[in-house]
Every structure is written in structure tokens, then in C-alpha cells.
Design a protein around this nucleic acid. Structure first.
Lengths: 289, 289
DNA sequence: CTCTGTCATACCCTGTGGGTATCACTGGGA
DNA sequence: TCCCAGTGATACCCACAGGGTATGACAGAG
């Protein structure tokens, strides 16, 4: 094998080991035996001329080079997976270059429903609109979906999502509201400030996972909006959301505008090297809404 | 092999064929015989369940899916090469995580010399500065160097470079000047407009390659600044450059400010997922200049 | 109607990626 | 103190995939 080329398989193996920090578990995750995995990693280190793992007593840790390869390798694996997914998607209707394809649009499960509706309606009215598949996702997953090709384009919300590494256009700016149980004393106020809702001992702010882990704090750990809505209705927590989230409010909830919360900007975002005509049309439609 | 995983080798093969549109030449470029290459591409098409190439009478052309895989595959190969290069670079001094490494900074060969000098001086004065390797490159290559890991960070100049897909910070905004042979009638003017220099039949604007090809036009095709300087001195062409390019003017050249040319903004740019401390320090230094 | 240029097929062989069995080492507990 | 559990490395073997050579099938140009 060429000495300066990294094979996808090697990256998969290394990332598994680097994430597990344990050859046995990594091998199991990869569906193979431990010895060939050890050998593959050794070969990789020899070929790169770099030591990636520190085999200590009782376990494994990453060297500096190992940390670099973990980050860069994940990015490379994402790009490779994206190539496969987008090619498959483009090939469904064995179509000539530049023809309409399908587009997968990732949206936060309950984010800016009206905007999404308007966008889909407007785009569908375009003369040669592609088919849009809407992929509802969790609270902060759009970046990953876009990176590994499960989605082609996404609606993102700063400052919750990061636009780093994507092209994007601004669509909508809005304030935030506190979602409170109807009947709570604060629900009667015309406006609130962030300190009002973050310092109430009997109403801790709910926490949701960022990159798979929960920030420390007193609030309940939630992972979908139904959970959150229920906890709010029960008077167990308070949540802060963009203005447009009022749309999914139930009868038991009250939304009170926050005066000092950061503005939420909805963007349409896509991988920077995209060249599809369908995508260009969707972006044009979105910016002209 | 897993049916949903694309190997680096397969991507290399496909990109070669897609670029050459000829199995024989592609095989030669890859240093292998033609039949195994044909077979590998067939296997790839079968595994993806998509036809990538149209084998016509007399040659090969890309299907829509093939075009997608060409773009996405190049990106994936770049990311993979970047992973290998950056890992090797990080591993040189078998260092613990987060330690100072070397950073490769890509700069246009003759772009903003003073800014670069100030940046290097200021950064070298930092308490734990990493070693900076300056990689001078051609007229528009920084994006590629950053993408495939030959560089870690670059000075880029909009609107000549595209910042798409990178994180960046603005450093400097400047106007543009026309570089003329001293003695040309236009060289005596205090200012010029773009139409002054672009419509002169005896002084066609020089053209340089963008993405490997030359735009059509009457001007001479050049590919480095020494060539350009010589042609200007000979009175054969005129060039338009950022203000700071005055620094490399020879005695035979005159710079005349342009009143209506787009402003050139120098940015420091880096791959969006970078996490190195050395890079963070360099960026901080640059923005505080 | 060849002849040339192209990609596909047939067939073989070697290198390597993977499996099983086992070793070497280290730390913890009785 | 000694043994054992748990870890990664080593030794050895095998199958097969990826690569080579020879050749076929086809289409256009002359």
C-alpha cells in the first residue's frame, strides 16, 4: 500500500480505538477480533512514522498526534460517508448531469414551523423544483447531518448551531421567550430578563445534551421537546426558546418575552462545495421569502 | 467489504477515471493496468447501486451521480490527505496533547509583505509561540493547501480567494492600484477607473489561471509575478493589484490608484474544526495587530 | 471491410487482512 | 506474597481480494 495514503478502513479502526481507549471494546464495536486490530494500528503508526497511542499500564491514552488524527480522521470519515450518501441519492433516478434530484433538508423538530411551511410552499411553486425530503432532527444535530451527507441543506439557529464550515444565508431574526407553566407567578409578567428565569430556585432551567453530554446544573436532563413541554406544564422547569416556538405551545404553557436574551437568527446552511442546481434554487427561494 | 463504506483507494480510482475520462490514461496515472481499474469501478458502481459513468462509443462521460461523486470524492480525499499530513506534522516532536507544534502558514507569494512581517514578529514575541513555516504559494492556491492539509492557516484576499468552508477573521482592507509601465500616458494620471485600464486596446489586462484554467480574453497568460512584472515593464500589459503590492514595484513600474475597483480584504483563514492551541494564539495575535 | 482504439472478460497468483491460540506484563486482592 | 484477572502484543495460518497478462467484443474512421 502507498506509504502516504490513509485508507478509510484504517481511519475507522483508529477512531474506534481512540474513542473507546480500549482495543478489546473497539474490536467488538468493529465486529472483528482484537489481535488484527492491534496489528492494524501498529502498521498505521509505523506508516505515519508517528506514535498515536500511549499504551500505559491499565489502558490506552492518546498522544498529541493521536488527538489530531482523531479530529481530522472523523472529518475525513464524515466526508467519505457524505460522498457515498450523496452519490446514492443523486443516482436514484439515473439522471443526466445537473438534473433535479432529491434534497434532504434537516430541521430542528419544532423550530420555526411557519418559516419552514412558507419555504416549502414557495419552493414547490418553482418551475423545476426538486423533491424535498424534510429530515426532522434533535436539538443540535444539523451540523453532523450536513457533514456526513445524511442531509444536503439545513435550517440552523445561531447561537445554538454553529455555522463554521458551512455556507449560509440569513433568513429570520427573532427574540426569545421564556416558556413557563401557566399560573406560575412569573407567567403574569409582561416581560422577563434572563436573570429572572435563571435564578429561580424552584424552577431550574432544563438542560439538553450538546455533543452528547449534559452541562452540569440543577435542571432536569431532557432530550426531546415533548419531555420538556410536559415538565414545563408540571411546573418543574422553565425553558427559553425563540419567539417562533410559541407555535407549539400547549394550553398549559405561557410564553413571556425576554428582554435581554441573545437574538436567534435562522439561517439556511449547506456544505460550501455544493454545486447542485436544486440546492441553488432552494436557497434562492429561501432568501426571497 | 462493508457495502456502505467507500474506501480511499476506490475514491482515488474513480476520481482519476472521472478526470481523465479514459480508463487507459487513468490506469497509467495510477500506476496500474487497465483491467483491474475497470473492474474496480464496476464493483464501485455495483456497491453504490448507481451508474457513475456512461460508456459511450469512443470514450466515457459522467452521469449525474458521477459528477456528484467527483466533487464529494475530491473533498473526501482532501480531508483524508489532510488527516495524514497534520498527524505527521503533530507527531514530529512526540508531544503530549495540546503542546506547541509547527504551523504552516500559506501566503500569496507577493501579497501584503508588511502585514506578514508584522504578524510573524508579533507572534514570535508571544510567550509560547509555535514555529511558523511560511509556505509561499501561487496566485490562488491557498484554499487547496488548507483543504488537503499542506497548510494549517492562510492569509487570503477577498474577492480573489473564497472563504467558503473556512473560518476567518478580517485583518486589513485596502484599495487597488493599476500597475503600469512608467512612461505610459496613463501612468501620469493621479487616479484611474477600471474602465480606463480595461478598455485600452494596446494594454490588455493580464490573465492568470483560476482553478487551473484561463479565462478567455486578449491579455497574455501568466502564472507568476515575475512574468507579470516583466510584461508590464515591457509595456505589453497592465495589472490591477491591492495597494500593498506597491512594495514589490520595480523602477520600471508605476502604481496609480483605482477609484472604483472593489476593495481587497485580507483575512486570516483556517479549517473550521481546528482545535490547536498554537493556531488559536496566531489568530489572536493577528487580530490584535 | 479492415484496422485502430477502447473497455470488458477470463484466468491466475500473490500479498495481506483477518482468525485462533497464546504470551507477557501489570495491578489488585486474599 | 502469590495468584489471578485483564490488557495489549506475538505467532501462525488461511482465504480472498486486488492486481497482472492475455484476449475478446464492439464501434468508428479510413
Amino acid at each position: 500500500m502507498a506509504v502516504d495514503t490513509l485508507e478509510t478502513r484504517e481511519l475507522r479502526y483508529f477512531v474506534a480505538v481512540a474513542e473507546e481507549l480500549h482495543f478489546g471494546r473497539a474490536a467488538e464495536r468493529l465486529g472483528m477480533a482484537q489481535p488484527p486490530l492491534s496489528r492494524a494500528i501498529q502498521q498505521l503508526e509505523r506508516r505515519l512514522g508517528v506514535s498515536l497511542l500511549e499504551r500505559n499500564r491499565r489502558g490506552v491514552s492518546l498522544t498529541g498526534a493521536g488527538e489530531v488524527l482523531l479530529h481530522e480522521g472523523r472529518a475525513a470519515l464524515d466526508a467519505t460517508a457524505a460522498a457515498a450518501r450523496r452519490t446514492r441519492r443523486a443516482g436514484g433516478a439515473d439522471s443526466p448531469a445537473g438534473s433535479r434530484g432529491r434534497l434532504v433538508l434537516a430541521v430542528k423538530a419544532a423550530g420555526s414551523h411557519e418559516l419552514l411551511q412558507k419555504l416549502l410552499d414557495a419552493y414547490a411553486a418553482e418551475p423545476d423544483a426538486a423533491e424535498i425530503e424534510v429530515l426532522p432532527c434533535g436539538l443540535c444535530e444539523q451540523e453532523g447531518l450536513l457533514r456526513d451527507g445524511r442531509a444536503d441543506v439545513a435550517l440552523m439557529h445561531t447561537p445554538f448551531n454553529s455555522l463554521a464550515g458551512f455556507d449560509s444565508e440569513e433568513l429570520l431574526t427573532e427574540g426569545q421567550v421564556a416558556i413557563l407553566p401557566t399560573g406560575h407567578p412569573l407567567a403574569a409578567r409582561r416581560t422577563l430578563s434572563l436573570s429572572d428565569v435563571s435564578d429561580v430556585p424552584d424552577l431550574p432551567l432544563a438542560r439538553w445534551p450538546r455533543h452528547g453530554t449534559y452541562a452540569p446544573g440543577p435542571g432536569p436532563e431532557i432530550h426531546d421537546l415533548a419531555q420538556l413541554a410536559q415538565l414545563v406544564a408540571l411546573g418543574r422547569t422553565v425553558a427559553v426558546f425563540p419567539d417562533s416556538a410559541r407555535a407549539w405551545l400547549w394550553a398549559e404553557h405561557t410564553a413571556v418575552p425576554l428582554t435581554d436574551a441573545p437574538l436567534v437568527v435562522t439561517h439556511i446552511a449547506w456544505p460550501p462545495h455544493s454545486r447542485s442546481l436544486a440546492l441553488a434554487g432552494l436557497i434562492r427561494t429561501a432568501t426571497q421569502l
